[in-house]
Simulated assay, not measured.
Amino acid sequence: MKWQTFLIALVVLFFISCKNETKSLDNDVQMDNGKIMGIKEQAEVKNFVDQYLNTINDTLLDGRITDNYIRYMNGIPIATNKTELNAKMTLYAIGFPNYSIDKTFTEVCGNRAFIQWEFTGTNTGEFAEVIATGKKVHITGFSQLHFNMEGELFQEDIYFNQLDFLQQLGYSLSPPNLN
Rank of each mutant, 00 (worst) to 15 (best):
I101P: 01
I101Q: 12
I101D: 01
I101M: 14
I101N: 08
I101H: 02
D102F: 05
D102K: 15
K103C: 03
K103E: 14
K103R: 12
F105D: 02
F105A: 02
T106Q: 13
T106I: 14
T106G: 02
E107H: 08
E107G: 00
V108F: 09
V108G: 07
V108C: 10
V108L: 10
V108A: 08
C109E: 07
G110C: 01
G110H: 01
N111S: 06
N111G: 01
N111Y: 00
N111Q: 00
R112S: 09
A113C: 07
A113G: 11
A113H: 04
I115M: 05
I115A: 02
I115S: 08
I115F: 04
I115H: 03
Q116F: 06
Q116I: 04
Q116Y: 09
W117V: 07
W117K: 08
W117E: 08
W117H: 08
E118T: 15
E118R: 14
E118G: 03
F119K: 06
T120A: 01
T120Q: 11
G121K: 05
G121W: 07
T122M: 07
T122N: 13
T122C: 06
T122I: 14
T122A: 06
N123C: 14
N123K: 11
N123L: 11
N123M: 10
N123W: 10
T124K: 14
T124F: 03
T124E: 14
T124I: 04
G125W: 05
G125R: 03
G125D: 07
G125Y: 04
E126W: 03
E126M: 11
E126N: 14
E126L: 05
F127P: 08
F127A: 10
F127H: 13
F127I: 09
F127Q: 08
F127D: 09
A128G: 03
V130D: 01
V130K: 13
V130Y: 00
V130C: 01
I131F: 11
A132H: 09
A132S: 15
A132Y: 07
A132W: 06
T133S: 15
T133I: 08
G134A: 12
G134Q: 09
K135N: 15
K135M: 13
K135A: 14
K135P: 04
K136R: 13
K136T: 13
V137Q: 09
V137G: 07
H138V: 13
H138P: 02
H138L: 14
I139V: 15
I139Q: 05
I139A: 03
I139T: 11
T140E: 12
T140P: 00
G141H: 00
G141K: 00
G141L: 00
G141C: 00
G141A: 00
F142N: 04
S143M: 12
S143Y: 02
S143K: 08
S143D: 15
S143E: 15
S143W: 02
Q144N: 04
Q144L: 05
Q144P: 00
Q144F: 00
Q144S: 05
Q144D: 01
L145T: 04
L145R: 08
H146W: 06
H146Q: 10
H146D: 10
H146E: 06
H146L: 11
H146V: 03
F147D: 06
F147N: 05
F147W: 07
F147V: 04
F147Q: 06
N148S: 03
N148L: 02
N148D: 15
M149G: 10
M149I: 14
E150S: 12
G151F: 06
G151T: 04
G151K: 05
G151W: 07
